[in-house]
Every structure is written in C-alpha cells, then in structure tokens.
Design a protein around this nucleic acid. Structure first.
Length: 480
RNA sequence: CGGGGCGUGGCGCAGUCCGGUAGCGCGCACGGUUUGGGUCCGUGAGGUCGUGGGUUCGAAUCCCGCCGCCCCGACCA
C-alpha cells in the first residue's frame, strides 16, 4: 500500500503522527480509551532509552527499587500544593475484594508521597545521606485528551527520588540529572534539547524549582522531554523526612525527583520523522541495519544468501543490530519502503552484481532517495557500517539543530510574539512578566513559557511584554 | 462540560437524500507469476449495517430514544 504520509512540516503533522505510530508498528489500540498497547518494535525503542538512562543512573550512584502501585489517599493530601495539582487526574480504587475500602487507594500518578513516607523511616543520620533511589514503573493520570506516547492515560517511566543533607546538594543532584537527560536526548536520540528552568505557572506541584529539557518537533512545537525537580524541604516537612546531623540536631532533608517517560519515544518520532515515515537515530534504533537480498532465481539466490550469511556474521560480531529481510514474494522496492517507514537508519542491498563485484549498496535513511546510496566493498564491512552509522547519527543531530536554530526567533515586543506564534516557531525574549502576564500570553497566543534557558545572554534588557527591566530571557512556544 | 463530525467484514470507505438481493479498496488464505524503488492474474474466507423501539408487505436507508467513538477547547510528562 502506498504511503499516504504528509510532510511533517505541514499543518497535517498531527495526522501524520497518529498514522505513522500505527503503521510503523510502534503501537496498537487498546480497549480502554487513552491507553495504548506498545508493540514489540515500539517497546524495543523504549528499552534502548531505558538501558541508556539506567546505565547513567548507576554510574552516578543511584539504585533501583520498586514501590507499590497503590497509594493511600491520605498520603497525597499531606502536601497541599501536590494534591491540588494532581486531584483532577487521579484514578481511585474504592472497592476491592468485593467490599468498599475504608480508605480509597489512589493509583499512583507519581510516587513522591509513598517514597517520601518510606524515606522518613529509612533516614536517621547524616550518614544515610544522600539516599539515591530510582524506580522504573507505570503511572496513571486520567487526562482528558490523549495521544499515543505523548499523553496516555497509563505510561511507563522512570522516577528518581533522592534525599540530601543540604540545599546545595539537592540542587546539584537536580541539575546533574537534568544533564543526564540532556545528554541522552542530544547524543543518543539526536534531539538538540534546551535545558531550562520552569516558571512558577509551569512548575511541578509541590516543587521549589522545576527544570526541563525542551525539544523542537517537526512542526516547530515544543515538547517537554524530561524534568528534574528540586523539591526543597516541602516533601520532607510533609512526610517528616529528618536526620540527625554531626552536631546531633534534627534537620529536615532536601529532596529531589526527576522523571523521563515513554513520551521520549514520541519525541523521537516527531523530531525526526519525514514524508516517508520514521527516522530513528542509530544509537537507539532497534534495528540499525536491514539487509535486503536481491535475486531473480534459485540459481542467483544461493550465492547471494551465502554472501549475506558471511556479512551477517561479521556485522553480528561487531555488535551491530541487524535484520535480514528474507521474506519471499515481496519485491525489493516494497521492502525498501517498508523499512524506511519503520525508520531503520541504514539499509544494505546485495544482489548478483554485488556478489560478482564483492560489493554491496548501503543506503542512508537520513539522506533521501538515490543520493543516500553508495557502493562499498564487502571487505571490512563491519567497520564501514559502524562508521556510517556514526555519520548518520551525527547528521541527524546536525539536521535537527539547524532546524531548531532556524526556528527560534528573538523578539522585542508582544506583537512579535504573536507573529511568531502565528507563523510557527519559538520566541525568545527578555521576560519579567507576572504569572498573570504569562497566563494572558497563553490565552491570547496559545504559547506557554517553555523555560528560562540555563544558558543566558550577558547583561539584561527590557521585558518584551511589560517593558520592565529584565535579567533573563525566556522561551515561548506552542507545546504538546 | 461547550462547539463540530462519525458508527456498515481485520483496516479505510461507498450505499442513507429518493426504503426493494449488502458493495468497493486494502489486508488475509490458496494457486500461479514476479523480484536492483511500493508485481500482476485467478480463486476463496470473512458482515447481528452501534443499540432498543416505531412506521411499512419490506428498513443500513424514514421517525423517536439510548450507547459509543473521533476532532476543536478547558487539564497535562
């Protein structure tokens, strides 16, 4: 069937996304609205994300644990801002075992409360700090509107929770984890995210400060791809997380939490996809290389498959994730399109002519059409492929960075903000507005304050909205 | 909850205005053909037309009720 995909830069980007996640076999519909089945190919992509992050967590001294799905309703109520923030989207169990429960159980929307309760028992002394815990889990948030990966009723994520002796330690942890997210997004997912701080309006319910990494999608909208919160002493006070310091006096801990979800899968799809379908960065692609053998007859098939077996062995030995498409009855052209739609970064074509010449064709997914094809020798194929995968990885980051930078516009006035939002893109300008000003921006232009970037220009200027003196620039964009 | 739309084989749809044998494309199964950019031909399987009632000799089609889903808005990793 011919691909009906539209250009991701067009107004039909949403439609393109909804179609491609199904066609590329990432996801399937489920019986429950807002919940989606993640199919093996999509799950492998999530596993690649998970494995990379988990490695970074371990390297920075974090340990995995697992906390219960059900949280007593009273726990959420202990932190006022937190419960207010999450109440509208909670799923609550009131009946179990055929009886009405004395206290309803909340299906976790996040686990600060139950982990805070545990921390209060685990932590006695400054010697117990820092306590660095992460969990891989599912959470449920009953959102009104959902989309595969980007906003689902149930989603998979990791949530890190840490406790520290000092505010400085907590802040350092918060920023360290933000760096891990940013490094993953940039170097693995090839999405050049911008690190920044959230405004009061966008801050996590109960946090002192929230940091974010924001990525630009193919339609120039922003997507928050990971967050890290400095919770201050808010949860420590709500859950009585205290320790005895070296002077034998009781002190409240400073805690953090940080999370990255299956939304990252959607980010990768939306940041890189094109007319033909997905484009997956080699470092996270479940299949990095697909080999398409080409032959007309059984006589031609034997030598081709023999060469394929040899190439496959060499590539496997080098740790390259590959698949041989030996499906019968399908023409090569069909297979080319099929794997391009699924985003496989590199394709190897090998037919009788190549066997004679000791060559193969390698086709890059990041360069469209025939220009992405090249003949290479079968000698040292593993090294050739590995190098080309690195090239594709770098090229995809480069393309995404050029696209991002071309679509961030510096603004000096509210008019300019409105113009940028109408035309599409991100707006960057000096900002000293109030929370109400920020809400007005959202109402009138559809843009939200995505973040106050950590990297700031020198000096200061006048707020583009209020004209007041401003010391920081902020990024505004329409977001998912 | 406000505004708009849709429920017909696995998926996408036509048929509804004007009632009269349930159709098309894709997919699936089988046989043949084909393979360097989305092969072609043939045969076949598969549908309580969302649901309940009403009108009628006869309802996918007309009337009334109900249910479900999608899109836009409010909420959001």
């Amino acid at each position: 069937m011919a691909s009906q995909a539209v250009t991701p830069q067009s107004v039909d980007f949403s439609k393109w996304y909804n179609e491609i996640v199904y066609k590329a076999d990432l996801v399937a519909q489920s019986p429950v609205r807002g919940c989606f089945i993640i199919k093996p190919y999509g799950y492998e992509l999530w596993e690649a994300i998970r494995n990379s992050l988990d490695k970074s967590f371990k390297e920075t001294g974090h340990q995995n644990a697992y906390f219960p799905l059900f949280i007593p309703e009273s726990y959420l109520k202990r932190e006022a801002e937190h419960v207010e923030g999450f109440s509208p989207e909670l799923a609550v169990v009131t009946i179990a075992g055929g009886k009405t429960l004395e206290e309803p159980l909340v299906v976790r929307p996040t686990s600060e409360t139950i982990i805070g309760e545990a921390f209060s028992e685990w932590i006695q002394s400054y010697r117990d700090l820092p306590l660095l815990i992460n969990q891989w889990a599912n959470v449920v948030r009953w959102e009104l509107r959902t989309r595969p990966f980007l906003r689902t009723t149930e989603f998979l994520w990791q949530e890190g929770h840490t406790a520290h002796a000092t505010e400085a330690d907590a802040e350092a942890e918060t920023l360290q984890m933000l760096d891990i997210y940013a490094n993953f997004a940039i170097h693995e997912a090839a999405i050049p995210v911008i690190k920044g701080r959230k405004s009061n309006v966008e801050r996590f319910a109960g946090a002192l400060r929230t940091y974010t990494v924001e990525g630009m999608m193919g339609d120039k909208r922003a997507l928050q791809s990971g967050t890290s919160h400095n919770l201050g002493q808010n949860f420590a006070k709500a859950f009585d997380i205290q320790y005895l310091d070296e002077a034998n006096t009781r002190q409240y801990c400073w805690t953090t939490s940080w999370g990255l979800s299956t939304r990252m899968v959607g980010a990768i799809v939306m940041a890189h996809g094109d007319d033909t379908g997905l484009r997956l960065p080699p470092r996270v692609a479940p299949i990095q290389l697909v080999i398409v053998p080409i032959f007309r007859s059984e006589d031609e098939k034997a030598p081709v498959m023999q060469a394929v077996d040899q190439l496959k062995a060499a590539l496997n030995a080098a740790g390259i994730r590959l698949r041989v498409d030996d499906r019968e009855g399908l023409r090569p052209g069909f297979k080319f399109n099929d794997w391009e739609m699924r985003g496989v970064p590199l394709r190897m074509e090998i037919g009788p002519k190549d066997v004679d010449n000791n060559s193969v064709v390698l086709a890059r997914r990041d360069v469209p059409g025939k220009e992405g094809k090249q003949f290479v020798s079968q000698e040292n194929i593993a090294a050739t492929v590995a190098e080309l995968l690195d090239t594709v990885q770098a090229s995809m980051l480069q393309q995404a960075t050029v696209f991002r930078d071309a679509n961030i516009h510096d603004i000096q006035s509210y008019d300019q903000l409105q113009q940028v939002m109408e035309a599409g893109g991100w707006a960057r300008g000096w900002w000293a507005g109030s929370d109400d000003d920020e809400r007005r921006v959202k109402e009138e232009t559809g843009a939200t304050l995505r973040c106050i970037p950590l990297e700031q220009p020198a000096g200061g200027g006048r707020c583009f909205m209020t004209g007041q003196a401003a010391g920081e620039v902020a990024l505004f964009a329409k977001a998912y």
